[in-house]
């Protein structure tokens, strides 16, 4: 059994149209998945159903072998955390320290333990010097890092990033990606929802959503060779990959292909 299993998941806000339709996904422990899709493709809804914020109409979600239901949501949310798009709307505490503590407070972790964990995880996201700062004095990227620390402190090992970089300036965005890379290296399972293909390229696998359905779910390298998947989903491949694909380079030109890939990743 996979670490995260989504079986025939269907969701709708009203009776008429399904926002998610028969979604089947298996994600292994430690994988980095990018979820790509146009606006309204259902990618954010998928994220919300995964943490039990929305209740599916049909289908089941298993996380670490445990089925997600209203009763098990509390237990499951210990394993899975989510960083939302707007850095301001998820900062609950009055200071950085309070905000990192918020999740742990809900889990009734003793105060002494909280204090040492806050120091540990604040250091991990390089926010140790800001513990007493108020959110008004932090940048968007810093707030997102605090959100990550809050999730790590709850000992979650799955983190969903729901377009977490989309409201950040280029510099903070690059920095946040750097932290996501470290988290991946530490063995966390990462689900990154984005509409930025360059960002998605960093993932192990890419899931393309289209009109509430899983349109494709493959290894990053393989999926990038299939241009039609992206054009069908109103997404655009980076130019360099487009070139690499259209040149149909033979093995002799491996070097050029690699360079083009590298270029796409840097961008």
């Amino acid at each position: 059994m996979s670490y995260i299993e989504v079986k025939d998941l269907t969701f709708s806000y009203n009776e008429k149209t399904n926002v998610l339709e028969a979604v089947n996904i298996n994600i292994e422990k430690g994988e980095w998945i990018a979820v790509l899709g146009h606006n309204g493709s259902g990618k954010s809804t998928l994220a919300k159903t995964l943490v039990g914020l929305l209740e599916p109409k049909e289908g089941e979600i298993f996380i670490d072998g445990q089925i997600l239901s209203e009763e098990s949501a509390y237990e499951i949310r210990k394993k899975i955390g989510i960083v939302f798009q707007n850095p301001d709307n998820q900062f609950v505490g009055v200071t950085v320290r309070d905000d990192i503590a918020f999740g742990m407070e809900n889990l009734c972790i003793p105060r002494e333990e909280m204090l040492s964990k806050i120091d540990f995880y604040a250091k991990k996201v390089n926010m140790l010097d800001f513990l007493d700062k108020e959110p008004a004095n932090l940048s968007g990227g810093q707030k997102q890092r605090v959100a990550i620390a809050g999730i790590l402190a709850m000992q979650s090992d799955i983190i969903i990033f729901d377009e977490a970089t989309s409201m950040l300036d280029p510099f903070s965005r690059e920095e946040l990606i750097k932290y996501i890379k470290t988290l991946h290296k530490d063995g966390l399972t990462i689900i990154m929802i984005t509409h930025d293909i360059n960002e998605a390229l960093l993932a192990d696998k890419i899931l393309v959503m289209n009109k509430g359905k899983v349109y494709a779910f493959e290894e990053t390298e393989t999926i990038m060779k299939k241009k039609e998947i992206f054009t069908d989903s109103h997404l655009e491949l980076p130019v360099s990959l487009d070139i690499a694909n259209s040149l149909e380079l033979s093995d002799k030109h491996k070097e050029i292909r690699e360079k083009l890939w590298e270029y796409a990743l840097i961008k």
Binding site: R77, F84, N89, V92, M104, L115, G150
Partner: peptide, 26 residues
């Protein structure tokens, strides 16, 4: 909109209204 997103963020971090919580500021 903000309050809805905030409620989501709080719920996803296991906040249950009225439940017992420990406190960082004692």
């Amino acid at each position: 909109m903000r309050s809805e997103e905030l409620a989501n963020a709080m719920e996803s971090r296991n906040f249950v209204p009225g439940e017992k919580r420990t406190r960082i500021n004692e």
